[in-house]
Amino acid sequence: MVKYCDIFWSFFKVGTFTIGGGYAMLPLMRREIVERHGWLDEEEFADQVALSQALPGVFAVNMAATTGYRLRRGAGAAVAIGGNIVMPIVFILAIAIGFRSVKDNAAVEHIFLGLRPAVVALVAAPVFQMARSARLTWSNGWIPVASALAVWLLGVSPIAVVLVAAVGGYLCSLLPHKD
């Protein structure tokens, strides 16, 4: 039986020592789960990754939840998630509280003037990477374009767009295909 404290400690390390979000955590998670503890083999781990991508929400937390659940059911999932997010929450809260008192400082203001255009670029870059790997054509390219325009120009909620797309995708799959 896998110990709760082992589950907690593994995900604590992954959550605390990776900067840059879910996919940056993947190699470290693989090392802990597959190589160090042998909780899952390579194939099972690949299944967890596919499952965590298919479920909505934060990828890293889904990985913690599915793995913890597999090892020790609900309590295992809770321990894994807790370990994964406790330090990130403490860090970002400390920054949120501290940032208000320094943000009018001239040096901090100058740093953030430099950061803001970089953030725009960091959000824009994956659009082009994902568009390339999705192999957009004239028959499906209208979907991302229409979603972007609906949200950006018309102010439609992204949640509504996801909902409509999911229902639309489901309905289309029911239509007879001309194979």
């Binding site: 725009v120 959000v123 994902m130 979907i143 767009v161 797309a165």
Partner: peptide
Amino acid sequence: AAVMRVLRLVVIGLIAAAALGLVGEESF
């Protein structure tokens, strides 16, 4: 699979909208 395929396309548009929403005087 069909739902995931459509969602993957929609997500590209949503991230594009987020980037466009960040373009403004506060950033540049």
